[in-house]
């Protein structure tokens, strides 16, 4: 089963290498990983999607925790959360097919962000299900290129997985 981990890390150089290195060294598979700063510039938030059973996830969790730069890990899979992913798709679009494609773009509430001689580039955001459906419906036209940001996620309501509370200023000399 796919698990979504919300991981708070200190925004230190090399932190991504530490996390990625840990996954490859321990033979853990990352489905997707998205990373960026939080409202606190010293802290970054990673959203990591991993596939595996509970025992496997327990090891992933514990090994991640051993990284000194990792502040907090929340497995939000079973909580109510919103998740989004942004995808750019460059699709083959002969003049005759454009109307049809634009209709699909409308239905999926996607946006056309670039128009080429024989292509259209489309941006779509949404959860996994929507994105897969959109991708499937464009495939018959010929997808020339596709990039995904990886999923980002956030708990619904008041709960937060991005506050560590413990990030004090340190004694600098």
């Amino acid at each position: 089963m796919a698990h979504t981990l919300a991981v708070l890390v200190e925004n230190n150089p090399g932190v991504l290498a530490r996390v990625a290195g840990l996954f490859s060294r321990r033979g853990f598979n990352i489905d997707s990983l998205a990373v960026g700063r939080t409202d606190n510039p010293a802290v970054s938030r990673m959203t990591i999607v991993v596939e595996g059973d509970d025992r496997y996830l327990e090891q992933v969790n514990k090994q991640l925790h051993k990284l000194v730069d990792v502040i907090k890990i929340s497995d939000i899979t079973k909580d109510a959360y919103v998740d989004r992913e942004l995808v750019l798709i460059k699709v083959h679009a002969e003049a005759a097919k454009r109307a049809e494609i634009m209709q699909l773009v409308d239905i999926f509430r996607a946006r056309i962000v670039d128009v080429g001689l024989k292509t259209l580039t489309v941006e779509v955001t949404g959860n996994e299900g929507k994105i897969t459906a959109f991708e499937d419906s464009l495939r018959p036209f010929g997808i020339k290129e596709l990039v995904r940001t990886g999923k980002i996620a956030m708990l619904r309501g008041f709960k937060s997985s991005s506050k560590s509370n413990s990030h004090k200023e340190e004694d600098e000399s």
């Binding site: 890390v9 730069d69 990792v70 413990s166 004090k168 004694d171």
Partner: peptide
Amino acid sequence: FKYPKNINLPG
């Protein structure tokens, strides 16, 4: 030079 008394390692 000043040797710190406290360090902060939130993780």
